[in-house]
Nucleic acid binder design. Structure first.
Lengths: 105, 105
DNA sequence: CCATTATATTAGTATATATGAATATTAGAA
DNA sequence: TTCTAATATTCATATATACTAATATAATGG
């Protein structure tokens, strides 16, 4: 669950959502990402670090450039996680708390 | 997009994810949610406010109880949003920045 | 009305995060 | 090696957030 929290934190920022949107068409180098956003290079670097450490984005060096791309596997994991915590399942904390409820709803 | 950021912020907390998980089996009153988590009542109230203002959770009064439930429509909107920003689409910022790229990837 | 129960708000504190300026590192080119 | 370009890190600051204690509000029952 902690890894999902890190992903949601990564998604909780407009600049990072724009970066993901830019990467949706394919890999980009950091310099191209900088061109698409009105932020300084250190700030973009900071955002890329957060996106990478969350797992949402892959990065590899190619010469002096850093090439970034979306990690679709992790994206699918997030989608599955959201579906899982929001839909009915037999084993859940709620079964415990519903017994001896203070109200009958 | 700002509304989605608010949703991701709401999802970026372990207590709130547990609350969503609890609500996945159906509506609960605040008192039952308190029983399921090791937090004080004001803290739970704070989390419910964030979940409600993000839209992920509905709340209505029934007598002296507050009954909370998941807003499935909003959950589906988040799922669609994540899919949208992470998958290929014709119109995107990336098309602009890819022209005159500083590197050939 | 008064007492009790359920929930919300306020105030204060501690921690986290976004940002840019300055600087460091890394890699290719001259 | 020296210069330049691309990216990362450090440092400082401003804003946001999680939490609790204390208090306030709301609803029901006596």
């Amino acid at each position: 669950m902690e890894d999902k929290i890190e992903i949601f934190k990564a998604l909780s920022d407009k600049s990072r959502l724009l970066i993901l949107d830019m990467l949706s068409c394919g890999e980009l180098c950091a310099c191209d990402i900088i061109k698409g956003l009105d932020l300084t290079q250190p700030t973009i670097s900071h955002h890329m670090k957060i996106l990478k450490s969350s797992g949402l984005v892959n990065g590899h060096k190619k010469g002096k450039w850093m090439i970034y791309s979306i990690n679709e596997e992790v994206v699918n994991e997030v989608l599955d996680f959201i579906k899982h915590i929001t839909t009915y399942k037999e084993e859940c904390i709620c079964n415990r708390v519903k017994k001896n409820s203070c109200c009958d709803k």
